[in-house]
Design a binder for these strands. Sequence first.
DNA 1: CGGTATCCCCGCTGATACTG
DNA 2: CAGTATCAGCGGGGATACCG
Lengths: 125, 125
Amino acid sequence: MADSCRVETALEILVGKWKPVILFHLFSSGTMRFSELQKAIPDITKKMLTAQLRELEYHDIVHREIYLQIPPKVEYSITEYGKKMTPLLQAMNDWGMAHVEHLNELYGKDQSVESFEVNDELVGK
Amino acid sequence: MADSCRVETALEILVGKWKPVILFHLFSSGTMRFSELQKAIPDITKKMLTAQLRELEYHDIVHREIYLQIPPKVEYSITEYGKKMTPLLQAMNDWGMAHVEHLNELYGKDQSVESFEVNDELVGK
DNA sequence: CGGTATCCCCGCTGATACTG
DNA sequence: CAGTATCAGCGGGGATACCG
């Protein structure tokens, strides 16, 4: 735990209602157009998709490739630097899965940690 | 990255303006009274301290020991299960530190990722 | 001492419409 | 197609006061 705590720095990048799902899709599919992301995440609005992508872009996690053509085409992908997040995301994912199990043991199977609609979405894709 | 994404589960537990700082102090000091946490985190209100501690307690990360006496005494500590979060917190902390460096390289030293007041607080303790 | 109870504000998110 | 602009709602968080 050392003498300081930058956990919040990591949180800042990931926090945002749709960032984990966006990252999940980009990590899985490699490169996706704006409209492909929209299709993959039906409930997100253009406004939010744009906003969250811009934040990830600012943090050099996501790359935005613009093709100057009509109609426009924009592709998003994980940067090389962004790929270094994989172990962290993996660790969070693993801990999250174990924690769901733990909560089930504590409170019973019917309990939810909320916000699982996001996962339903992934399942239904 | 597997076929599902429980990253958000991990985020839920940590998200909350004061949870990382609270965890930092409890991990560092072992056991702390309510008032000690207040002193360690001057800007937090009783309401928020209580709320965030209750959430951590619900998730079995923090244990709440009540001493039935006048004046009241309540001690908070990390549960055994909670201690299993250490590697995750460490990973997030490490990534966070590296990311601050990365942002400095990209945008210059003066840039901030915001919310560093929390750290100032820790430094000033 | 260790909390609740109330009231309030602001910023994230959503819905909808418009545009190059 | 890939956005921006505008308006509106809701809830996390803050300030303050009170309580066993």
